[in-house]
Simulated assay, not measured.
Amino acid sequence: MSKVLGVIGGMGPAATVAFLARVQALTPAEGDADHVRVVMDLNPQVPDRNVRPGEAEEELGRMAAGLAAAGAQVIAMPCNTAHGQAGAIREVCAARGLVFIDMIAATADAAAASGARRIGVLATPGGER
């Protein structure tokens, strides 16, 4: 049985929908029941990560806690910028024994493993930390 994926989304909503479409498309499934179970909080009202990073981090932590309460065992967040405020998510995951997939770290690891010496990143400036 696969783990339940919790998705912190809504920043922006289209990125979250695209992420979920990729999860579905890349899951080796022969039928509906073979797909990954996903619980999601699509919240486009997360405070602006560029100008209110502390408030954004608090809200992201609340979202992670809500997903954990809904049964998520692994947390993903398809927003580059919001990873700058992922501290509260990491705290929730550590306290509850969940895995947080840090897409920035995972991308850097994959690039390094491929031998890449330069990579490009598309993201908004993010808030100062």
Rank of each mutant, 00 (worst) to 15 (best):
P47M: 10
V121L: 14
L42N: 15
G12V: 03
A116E: 12
C79E: 14
V23D: 05
H35L: 11
G84A: 10
P125E: 05
L20F: 08
G115S: 07
M63K: 03
G54E: 12
E55S: 08
G9L: 02
G126S: 03
A108M: 02
V23T: 07
D41H: 11
Q45E: 09
T81H: 09
A14I: 08
I89H: 12
G71Q: 09
M11F: 01
I104S: 01
G12C: 01
G31K: 08
G66W: 13
A111V: 06
Q73M: 12
A64G: 09
A65Y: 11
V74W: 05
Q24C: 15
V4F: 08
D48H: 09
G84Q: 04
H35G: 15
A113C: 11
V92W: 01
E30T: 05
L20E: 11
E58Q: 08
A112S: 14
R52E: 11
A69C: 07
N43A: 15
V36L: 12
I119F: 15
E59N: 06
F100I: 02
A69T: 06
L122K: 01
N43F: 04
G126W: 01
M77Y: 01
P78S: 04
M103W: 15
G6D: 13
A88I: 06
A15P: 00
S114F: 07
A108F: 13
S114H: 14
A94S: 07
G71H: 10
M40A: 11
D102Y: 12
N50V: 08
G84L: 07
V121H: 07
G66F: 13
V121N: 12
R62C: 06
F19C: 03
R49Q: 06
A29R: 03
E59I: 12
V7K: 09
N80G: 10
T16E: 04
L98D: 10
A68Q: 10
V99F: 12
P13W: 05
R96M: 07
R49D: 00
T27P: 10
D109H: 14
R129K: 10
R96C: 01
A65T: 14
V99Y: 01
S114G: 09
T124L: 10
R90C: 09
A111L: 15
E128T: 13
I101P: 00
N50P: 04
A18P: 02
M77T: 04
N43G: 14
Q73E: 14
V39W: 03
R118W: 15
T16L: 02
G31V: 01
F100M: 12
R118M: 10
H83M: 07
E30P: 02
M11I: 04
Q45A: 14
A56W: 05
A65S: 15
A123G: 11
L20G: 06
A88L: 03
T107V: 04
V46Q: 02
N80V: 03
L26E: 03
A95H: 07
G66E: 14
A112T: 11
R52K: 05
V36G: 04
T124D: 06
A113I: 03
G84I: 00
V23Y: 00
V36N: 01
S2W: 02
T81M: 02
R90A: 02
M103T: 12
P13S: 13
L60C: 04
P13E: 12
I101S: 05
T107E: 07
R22T: 13
D32Y: 09
M103P: 12
T27W: 04
I8D: 02
D41K: 03
L98Q: 00
G84R: 12
A18C: 06
N50Y: 00
A64K: 02
L5A: 06
T81L: 05
M103K: 02
D34A: 13
I101G: 00
